[in-house]
């Protein structure tokens, strides 16, 4: 194999290899030969083991996916937001996912912001806080994939639906864009996409998951603050988090929507 040869060459003498690259002797072959095609699924190892054999209409009942956001790990870099925007080419000003920054002072005043949804990261500290800061953290937001989704309940035409495997999705071919789901979602994760003129929201990257890949935001998170996995797999991290003592909660539990999105280390100030 060509690649093996190149790799061997690199490991033999890196400096010589770089010289050759710079000299152009290898560069050409590197650019022209793309082994197996980087976008072909076969070239990318499965991130969710066994998913590619799961080819039914729905994900096998043996799996139950959960999404966990670990607030105690998030660094607010916004990688997830960037990946999400690029994966779905989300129009400016609309957010399938975003990262909020919470600052709580010692008077219990809560300051929240999310400039451009955290897409540009957080470069500057908040300068409008008079009192000493008691607590500060980042909270990534995305679709809660409710067990009892308000959006599905209110959609007048059956364009927003819940699959048997628990995903809440939008049928862009039937959506009339009445906006009722946008009003009904307690978490404000929905918007009317100005390009498609239909309702849009985070899908937990259903198209990636079904191809054995992690959601784009989980895949890019450098600190594993976003976790996605199978609750029926006792070795999975999500299983361990939800089945061992942890401070775990969901957003707005009194809404009765029963989100499948859980948060580790969620503070009561977070809505």
């Amino acid at each position: 194999m060509m690649m093996d040869g190149i790799e061997k060459e690199i490991s033999q003498d890196r400096r010589a290899f770089i010289k050759k690259v710079l000299g152009g002797t290898i560069a050409g072959s590197l650019l022209l030969v793309i082994p197996a095609g980087a976008m072909e699924l076969s070239a990318i190892p499965e991130q969710i083991p066994g998913m590619r054999d799961d080819t039914g209409t729905f994900i096998s009942k043996k799996r139950k996916f959960a999404f966990i956001v670990d607030i105690t790990r998030c660094i607010g870099c916004g990688s997830c937001c960037v990946a999400d925007k690029n994966e779905y080419q989300v129009p400016d000003g609309m957010y399938r996912t975003w990262v909020e920054r919470y600052v709580i002072d010692d008077q219990d005043n809560v300051f929240v912001d999310s400039p451009n949804g955290g897409l540009d990261g957080y470069q500057e500290p908040r300068k409008d806080i008079e009192h000493p800061v008691r607590d500060t953290f980042f909270v990534p937001k995305l679709c809660n994939m409710c067990e009892h989704p308000s959006c599905v309940q209110v959609c007048p035409v059956g364009a927003t639906y819940q699959t048997d495997d628990g995903f809440v999705l939008v049928d862009a071919k039937r959506c009339v864009a009445c906006g009722y789901c946008v009003q009904a979602c307690p978490y404000s994760v929905r918007f009317i996409n100005p390009k498609t003129k239909t309702a849009d929201k985070c899908t937990w990257c259903y198209h990636r998951v079904r191809k054995g890949l992690l959601p784009a935001c989980v895949n890019v998170c450098p600190v594993q603050a976003r976790k996605f996995g199978d609750l029926n797999d006792k070795d999975s991290e999500v299983y361990k988090i939800l089945h061992q003592p942890h401070v775990v909660s969901v957003l707005k539990p009194d809404m009765g929507n029963k989100p499948a999105l859980h948060y580790v280390g969620l503070r009561r100030e977070v809505v």
Binding site: E7, I18, I34, A38, K173, R174, H207, R208
Partner: peptide, 29 residues
Amino acid sequence: HYRGDAIQDEINRPNRHGTNASCLVCHPY
């Protein structure tokens, strides 16, 4: 109460991101 084929439409959405493995397979250095 939805269009069953919509699920396949969603699955068929083209992936724009791969994983680090998709990049590193061609960039061994």
